[in-house]
């Protein structure tokens, strides 16, 4: 269905989109960016591959990747409970004056948003395929 030009351009652009997503997610504490924006960028890279190359492989990948969503939510909760147990209140910073908590939560949120948006698009595409 898609032409050779679209396939080649999608294959060439996707690594750079993923790299910029990783940069935005992991350097969100220093520069503009953050977990949500990085996660959306990562998901847009995967969606580009899905649009240009068909969604069969990505569909199989996305069915095995859903548990990352639960993993992200649980990690967020564990960080909060560790702050409650060791620091005195919920989500207290364990290492003051260092951005460790921001980095960890940024990467966790980026993973969670990436998996979530990819799963939503995969299931929307699956709905459209069933219709035809």
């Amino acid at each position: 269905m898609t032409s050779l030009i679209v396939k080649t351009a999608g294959r060439a652009l996707t690594p750079f989109i993923l790299l910029s997503g990783l940069y935005v997610a992991s350097f969100g504490f220093l520069s503009p960016g953050g977990g949500f924006q990085g996660g959306i960028l990562l998901a847009s890279g995967v969606i580009l591959i899905m649009v240009t190359h068909g969604s069969k492989e990505v569909h199989r990948l996305a069915e095995n990747i859903d548990w990352f969503e639960t993993f992200g939510a649980l990690t967020f909760l564990i960080v909060g409970l560790a702050g409650l147990l060791l620091g005195g209140y919920l989500f207290s910073n364990l290492l003051p004056d260092t951005p460790l908590m921001c980095i960890v939560l940024d990467i966790v949120i980026a993973l969670k948003v990436f998996v979530g948006i990819t799963a939503v698009f995969v299931y929307f595409f699956g709905m459209g395929v069933k219709e035809c």
């Binding site: 504490f29 220093l30 520069s31 951005p99 921001c102």
Partner: peptide
């Protein structure tokens, strides 16, 4: 105290993490 230069991230993930 948060160590993050980006104020939006500092508020989002440290002051108002709940």
């Amino acid at each position: 105290k948060t160590g993050a230069d980006n104020m939006v991230e500092a508020i989002l993930l440290d002051f108002r993490a709940y």
